[in-house]
Design a binder for these strands. Structure first.
Length: 940
RNA sequence: GCCGGGGUGGCGGAAUUGGUAGACGCAGCGGAUUCAAAAUCCGCCGCUAGUGAUAGUGUGCGGGUUCGAGUCCCGCCCUCGGCACCA
């Protein structure tokens, strides 16, 4: 029975062993010769219409990494599947070629960013081709190509024209030693990442795009018009846009500036979403840059350095939430707009000048941040919100107090207004003397209040004079109306979303097409002079933007008056490049930004990329689309109908300890693993026996040295194995951990596919269609397995769950191998025909070769465009079916019934079963539940 | 801190969405083939008890709903992301 004893029928021109190198080069040569992946608008070969699927364009960092392989294989499977379904597919590719890494690389290698970038593109393109990805390379683009960024500039000028782009000063991180602007991530503990210099905040002019004009539309579409986006992604965008409805109102004051004029016309504005708590304001806090803070510094010079000190520290929401709240009292007072009370102005390090009016009202009783601030500085707390229950409890305590003391009742307000910063103990001690019960009740209330006040639940107003006992919305309405009547405020909607600052004081980007003239000011470059070409020979050295020293670039004449002028040296944020590249693919080489072809392909049917782009890129792209729409360049509202966020690839991390707690990372491939008693990895040793420590599982990356080079995989196992592995390792949206041995398993499966086909080549070539009547029981069972797996595979293709598509193929092969060569040629043929087609999108090379070698191409056409297989209804019919038998919900066995059995017959069979006799303990069935085709549950 | 995703064997993961938990694969163990090894093929493989048939138990923890819960509800724990110019 051994394999060697079987006379293997040889087939002409077919190798008996799978050789990935010859198979893959043959397939790729063929596809290239027939230009297999060129997409043409309205191609009559594809009657079902277009299907545009695109991966986010990669940054050309040097080599592909496994994340790319996964991303592009998902994309490739999608379009290959859709093409076999009859759609006219488009899958283009390009390069996000501008950006900071090229400048950093230039500093290290002394190579110009342009040369470095183009070399990387060459290498990565070759790798894409080696992977057999079905890209239409005729539409390739690089964003650093003047033919591309010309349209960034053109559209920027259009935005300037209609007010969508404007110039204002912006606050940036400035490195005084390197003379350069730093990104937030380049600031580490307040110092520049290269120079170590203390980073300053500088105000410099820059260009902004008015994305907030579209905030309402973007939010509305996020919530209602993107059904193909995940809930999670929509939520991230919703939070980012951050709509909040509240009240903007003023605290009047008579604080005057040095010239004797009222500061800000005597009105200090704040915005709040909790207008129901305005009666609880006990202080106000302003940002260190706020006019009142500046004025306080002038009036009391001792305060100025203290106020300046509050400017330090990060400004992101996360940093603000975690940092210690600090402040300085100014000795200045404003007036509460409703009560007329004097309220002291503080300067707080948690108030940002860039948010709203740069000032907040302080309600310590109902805002945890204000609470912490007030507790630290002894600011009074005034409670103005309580739940109905709390209100009733107060009355009960008051009554208890009254009956205990025989004195006057305590009002709920009195009870609730225990001053938490004052002598609570003293107050309680007094109550305790007269009534121990009341004392306990008060302590309990204090705890409960602490909990309730800061919870999201909005209770009733109390202690609020004429606004007492109102629900949240009623209180806001009443208070807003009163403020409006006094001319001091109104309801307002604000967004967290801010306008998009696109100016970068960097070299390697799209030049902003404006000219500075001493007489005319800032003048746009005329359209006919576009593109403003970036000189490509500079090698940045870290001392600021080389364009600032490039006289040839700088020197120009003013387009308005003709006098000598200076060119702008700021370049655009690279998110501008990626905001619309997917539309340039559709209109490759057009002499306009986009042309009619864009109307054919867009909106995109499927976009694929990492979740890390959930906000910036995706929001900018959506904004850009709407801006183009409003300028009449296109007719749709949203660019991406469906969005898939593939998960990260992870790997184990190992290191040897260095001095001062440093970690010397070691590639996992160099480590011989050790395991603890439960079988978990807990460390390992190097070749020479040096012990290494286990650092857990983390994202594949250069710094941890735990990346896997796809090139090694392709060389050793071939592209098909690499593709099969990355699809099999987990669902497209899940994170996946790398495993070397699992790659071997993927290779093993492909060898078995090859061997199966080679051993049955003669059967397959000569067989006709399956005649179900002539099959043996075993062959019928095999065919049932085959078509069941096909059904699963088709289901999973539709829901893009590619890991189980692969396992379905494995199930097919497991079943088909039971039919030995020569035993049933028709079934062998049907099996190969289905298996090769379901595998084609995953492993296109081996399936191409087997499909053509076995002669399917002659009967069914090229695999790329052949018809997608459907399960045969007849093959899925069984004479008898097994049902799970449960007794009282516990699985106890199974019963076999004819597939035609009705509910009564199944109930009877179940009741009569040995299991019911055994586990039912002689009791008669009370109830029998039948789930058709699945199980029967007998309740006794 | 706030918001979100996720916890299933030694490992990656499945369970067509309330119906046999662990499909498929990796690793491991036993066997066949081989002079030997590689490769390949066959079998076993959640945990506990038992030689065994079998029984009990089991999807992060604690409750609940249901004939039936990995799946639904309530309360926790852990973990990974996001929270404005790295792409």
């Amino acid at each position: 029975m051994s394999r060697g004893s079987i006379a293997r029928p040889r087939f002409p021109d077919m190798e008996s062993q799978y050789n990935h190198k010859t198979v893959e080069s043959a397939a790729q040569t063929h596809w290239s010769a027939i230009d297999a992946y060129r997409s043409i608008e309205n191609d009559p070969r594809f009657p079902k219409g277009k299907y545009y699927a695109c991966s986010m364009l990669p940054y050309p960092s040097g080599k592909l990494h496994m994340g790319h392989v996964r991303n592009y294989t998902i994309n490739d499977m999608l379009v290959r599947y859709q093409r076999m379904q009859g759609y006219n597919v488009l899958m283009p590719m390009g390069w996000d070629a501008f950006g900071l890494p090229a400048e950093n690389a230039a500093m290290k290698s002394k190579k110009a960013p342009a040369a470095w970038t183009y070399e990387n593109i060459r290498v990565m393109k070759a790798q894409c081709q080696a992977l057999g990805l079905a890209f239409d390379w005729s539409r390739e683009l690089a964003t650093c190509d003047p033919a591309y960024y010309k349209w960034n500039q053109w559209f920027f000028l259009k935005m300037l024209e209609n007010g969508l782009a404007y110039r204002k000063t912006q606050i940036v991180n400035w490195d005084p030693i390197d003379q350069t602007v730093l990104a937030n991530e380049q600031v580490i503990d307040g110092r520049g990442w290269r120079s170590g210099a203390l980073v300053e905040k500088r105000e410099i002019p820059g260009y902004y795009l008015n994305i907030t004009k579209y905030a309402e539309e973007l939010l509305d579409a996020t919530l209602h018009k993107l059904p193909g986006w995940s809930e999670r992604l929509r939520l991230i965008q919703e939070n980012w846009i951050g709509k909040s409805e509240g009240v903007r109102f003023a605290f009047p004051h008579d604080i005057k500036d040095a010239d004797g004029k009222l500061v800000q016309d005597g009105k200090m504005y704040v915005f709040t979403t909790r207008a129901d708590t305005i009666m609880g304001v006990t202080f106000v806090a302003v940002a260190p840059e706020h006019p009142l803070a500046i004025r306080a510094g002038q009036l009391n010079p001792a305060l100025a350095p203290k106020i300046d000190a509050l400017k330090l520290g990060g400004t992101t929401e996360a940093e603000l939430a975690l940092k210690e709240k600090e402040g300085v009292a100014t000795g200045l007072f404003v007036t509460h707009p409703l009560t007329g009370e004097k309220i002291e102005v503080w300067v707080g390090n948690y108030v940002l000048i860039i948010y709203g009016d740069g000032a907040v009202m302080g309600v310590p009783a109902h805002d945890e941040r204000d609470w912490n601030f007030a507790a630290k500085y002894g600011i009074p707390v005034k409670t103005v919100i309580g739940s109905e229950q709390l209100y009733r409890d107060c009355l009960a305590v008051s009554n208890a107090y009254q009956s205990a003391t025989g004195g006057a009742p305590l009002s709920p307000t009195e009870l609730l207004n225990v001053n938490w910063n004052g002598d609570i103990a003293g107050q309680l001690a007094h109550i305790a003397r007269v009534s121990p019960e009341a004392s306990n009740a008060v302590v309990g209330l204090a705890h409960q209040m602490r909990h309730e006040h800061f919870s999201a639940e909005r209770g009733l107003t109390i202690n609020s004079g004429k606004f007492d006992r109102l629900t949240f919305q009623d209180a806001v309405n009443a208070i807003a109306a009163d403020l409006a009547a006094k001319g001091l405020g109104e309801k307002k909607t604000t967004f967290r979303l801010r306008d998009w600052g696109i100016s970068r004081q960097r070299y390697w980007g799209t030049p902003i097409p404006v000219i500075h003239c001493d007489d005319c000011g800032v003048v746009p470059v005329p359209e006919k002079d576009l593109p403003v070409v970036l000189p490509e020979h500079h090698i940045p050295d870290g001392s600021g933007n080389p364009l600032n020293k490039d006289e040839a670039f700088l020197k120009c004449s003013c387009p308005k008056c003709g006098k000598p002028a200076r060119r702008e040296t700021d370049t655009m944020d690279t998110f501008v490049d990626s905001a619309w590249y997917y539309m340039r693919y559709t209109s490759a080489n057009a002499d306009t930004m986009v042309d009619a072809r864009n109307d054919y392909w867009m909106p995109m049917d499927q976009y694929i990329g990492g979740i890390e782009h959930a906000v910036l890129h995706l929001l900018y792209a959506r904004f850009w689309t709407k801006a183009m729409r409003d300028m009449g360049l296109l007719k749709f509202d949203e660019p991406f109908k469906r969005m898939t966020n593939h998960g990260m690839l992870l790997n184990h991390i190992f290191y040897t300890p260095g001095s001062h707690g440093a970690k010397n990372y070691v590639p996992p491939t160099d480590v011989k693993l050790t395991h603890d008693e439960k079988g978990h990895i807990n460390g390992g040793t190097l070749e020479d026996g040096t012990p290494v420590l286990y650092g857990g599982i983390g994202k594949m990356g250069k710094s941890e040295k735990n990346g896997v080079d796809p090139q090694d995989l392709i060389d050793k196992y071939g592209a098909d194995t690499a593709r099969l592995y990355v699809m099999f390792v987990g669902g497209p949206e899940d994170a996946a951990v790398w495993s070397d041995t699992a790659v071997e398993g993927a290779m093993r499966f492909l060898r078995r596919v090859w061997t199966y086909c080679a051993d049955r080549a003669a059967d397959i070539a000569n067989a006709g269609a399956v005649d179900a009547a002539t099959l043996t029981a075993e062959q019928k069972a095999t065919r049932f397995e085959l078509h069941s797996a096909l059904k699963q595979s088709n289901f999973d293709y539709e829901r893009q769950q590619y890991n189980t598509v692969v396992s379905a193929s494995m199930k097919m092969l497991n079943a088909l191998e039971a039919v030995k060569p020569g035993a049933c040629p028709s079934l062998a043929r049907e099996g190969a025909s289905i298996l090769l087609r379901t595998l084609a999108p995953v492993t296109p090379h081996i399936t191409y070769k087997l499909w053509s070698d076995l002669g399917f191409e002659k009967t069914d056409g090229a695999l790329l465009d052949t018809e997608w297989p459907q399960p045969d209804a007849g093959a899925l019919v069984q004479d008898e079916i097994k049902l799970v038998l449960q007794i009282n919900g516990k699985t106890r066995g199974e019963i076999v019934v004819p597939s035609s059995a009705d509910k009564a017959a199944i109930e009877a069979a179940a009741a009569a079963s040995a299991e019911v006799a055994k586990f039912g303990e002689g009791r008669a069935p009370k109830k029998i539940i039948v789930v058709p085709g699945r199980l029967v549950n007998v309740v006794v």
